[in-house]
C-alpha cells in the first residue's frame, strides 16, 4: 500500500475508528490518542513489509487490541459523566439528540453492560458491523457473536426497565 492510499484510508475511517474507541474507553482524549496510534501502528506494519488485504478490518483489529491494553492499564471514566458533558460538541459535529435524557439513559446502560456485551453492542450498532465482521475481529465464531448480541440486548432491556 502506498502512502497516498493509506492517507485516503485515514480520511475514510478516522471518524469510525475514533468513535469505536470513544464508546469503549469513555474518554475523548484517550480515544483520539488511541485512534491515532491505531493508524501509526498500521502504517508501521505496512512499512515493515506487512500485507494488509482489508484495511478497514485491520484497523479495527489494531484498535481493539489497543483498547484491551488500555482497559488493563486504566480505569475507564464513567460513560454517564460523558453523556452529561454532552459529548463535547466540536464545530459542526454536535450530536443532535432529541432527548438528552434518553441519551444519558442509553449511555448509562451501555456502561453498565459487562465489557464483552458492551463490545458487541458498540460494534453492531455504533460501528455498524455485521456479526461476521465482529467475529473475525474478535476471533470468535459468528454464532457466538450473534448469541452474545442477543444476550446483550436482553440485558440492556432489563437495565432500561429498572431505570
Amino acid at each position: 500500500m502506498e502512502p497516498e492510499e493509506f492517507l485516503r484510508a485515514y480520511d475514510k475511517y478516522a471518524d469510525a475508528i475514533f468513535r469505536h474507541c470513544y464508546f469503549r474507553l469513555s474518554d475523548r482524549e484517550l480515544a483520539q490518542d488511541t485512534a491515532q496510534e491505531t493508524f501509526t501502528r498500521t502504517w508501521k506494519y505496512i512499512a515493515d513489509g506487512g500485507d494488509v488485504k482489508n484495511i478497514r478490518a485491520f484497523l479495527y483489529r489494531v484498535a481493539h487490541n489497543l483498547i484491551i491494553d488500555e482497559w488493563k492499564r486504566k480505569k475507564a471514566v464513567s460513560l454517564e459523566e460523558l453523556a452529561e458533558k454532552g459529548f463535547d460538541p466540536k464545530d459542526d459535529n454536535n450530536v443532535d439528540l432529541a432527548n438528552v435524557f434518553d441519551a444519558r439513559e442509553a449511555a448509562k446502560v451501555l456502561e453498565l453492560l459487562d465489557k464483552p456485551y458492551r463490545e458487541v453492542v458498540v460494534m453492531r450498532y455504533i460501528d455498524d458491523m455485521s456479526p461476521k465482521e465482529i467475529a473475525r475481529i474478535l476471533g470468535e465464531t459468528e454464532n457466538t457473536i450473534s448469541v452474545r448480541i442477543h444476550r446483550a440486548l436482553k440485558k440492556a432491556k432489563e437495565l432500561l426497565n429498572h431505570e
Partner: peptide, 27 residues
C-alpha cells in the same frame, strides 16, 4: 429504543480541526 439511540451515537465524530491535526501527525 436502545438500538435507535445506539445508532444516534454514530453521529459522534472527530472535530474538523481534531481530524486535520491527527492527519498531520500521521502523515
Amino acid at each position: 429504543k436502545f438500538e435507535q439511540l445506539m445508532r444516534e451515537f454514530r453521529k459522534v465524530n472527530l472535530g474538523t480541526r481534531e481530524k486535520e491535526t491527527m492527519r498531520t501527525h500521521i502523515a
